[in-house]
């Protein structure tokens, strides 16, 4: 199976988007190589603005550019975009409802070797707490491409979470149309509803195969839009299965798990289990090893789900 990082798909999609939408401009903060905005820069040098190592200024310049009828996409690592520039996104982009897209790469522990200082596991929590913010976490390269286009169409502030690691590109039945706010059911099942986002979607699908061998029929749902979340779909599958598991490469505090819980709490009677980074910082290591350390590989997820059902 082909492996492509969502950040790379994003960088390429920007070029395609640039060809058809002259309003699109791209900003970066000295990480254009890593975030892949360099691909856009090469294609459209006069539509690319480097802010230097100044993420706060980058976000606010994007805010200003958006008021001039442009559609700015700005990128840095999740740590520095959602983290360093949180308040700029909150007060100067989301509060006035400006049309700025913050597309942050290197989210989660799959960053690997750079270690805990660079593995942002709080960005979904930070971004979804902002009123009116749209939060997207594409599961694979195709979805990252589709989401990039959808964001350009969508009028308003948005955050997209992208990964460093090259991961499987979905094929065949797993390729679904992307619609903002509409979850994609990738596998039907009746015993447990597994809601996942980002890189954890393919792990959850693998986990479901392992569970199937044990006679457990797991539904796997890709929640690519964390906010606004597809409540209808979440409710339906929680009711249908009676058991809910969420899987994310993010802290279990404030992320996908909490977003799903917010939909269900007080409404649906079901068991509930959050799988993610459990109140710890990340650390250095090969991405695969780090993911294993945090219990985020398919076999570990399957074990965890099985345990939660018994």
């Amino acid at each position: 199976m082909e492996k492509i990082a969502t950040r790379e798909a994003y960088g390429k999609a920007l070029v395609e988007l640039g060809a058809q939408d002259a309003r699109v401009v791209v900003l970066d903060a000295d990480l254009a190589g890593a975030t892949q905005t360099k691909i856009f820069k090469a294609a459209y040098p006069d539509r690319f603005y480097n802010a230097g190592i100044a993420e706060a200024n980058m976000v606010n310049m994007a805010a200003g550019l958006s008021t001039m009828g442009l559609v700015p996409f700005c990128s840095s690592f999740a740590m520095f975009a959602a983290g360093r520039a949180y308040e700029q996104i909150r007060n100067s982009v989301a509060y006035p409802r400006f049309n700025v897209k913050v597309c942050a790469t290197h989210a989660g522990v799959s960053v690997g070797e750079d270690g805990g200082s660079h593995q942002c596991i709080e960005d979904i929590a930070l971004m979804r707490a902002i009123p009116g913010m749209t939060v997207i976490v594409p599961a694979d390269a195709n979805e990252a491409r589709a989401a990039t286009f959808a964001l350009a169409e969508f009028e308003g502030p948005a955050y997209m979470r992208l990964a460093r690691l090259a991961t499987p590109v979905f094929e065949g039945d797993m390729v679904k149309p992307f619609e903002l706010g509409k979850a994609n059911v990738l596998r039907e099942g009746k015993d447990v509803a597994v809601f996942a986002c980002g890189l954890m979607v393919s792990e959850a699908l693998e986990a479901a195969k392992i569970l199937a061998a044990d006679g457990i029929d797991a539904a796997v749902i890709n929640i690519h839009t964390i906010k606004p979340i597809d409540s209808e779909c979440v409710m339906k599958y929680a009711k249908q299965c009676g058991h809910v598991v969420t899987v994310e490469e993010h802290s279990t505090i404030g992320g996908l798990g909490d977003a799903v819980a917010d939909v269900l709490m007080g409404k649906v009677n079901c068991s509930f289990k959050k799988i993610g980074v459990e109140d710890r910082f990340g650390q250095s290591g090969k991405a695969a090893d780090v993911l294993r350390e945090y219990g985020l590989t398919a076999d570990q997820i399957a074990e965890n789900i099985k345990a939660s059902l018994s």
């Binding site: 706060a56 200003g64 550019l65 001039m68 009828g69 100067s92």
Partner: peptide
């Protein structure tokens, strides 16, 4: 622009001028 959090407006103005 919405302001009140100090230190941000100048950057927004820079973005506008750049735009």
């Amino acid at each position: 622009a919405s302001t009140g959090s100090l230190g941000q407006g100048c950057s927004i103005a820079v973005g506008m001028a750049l735009g």
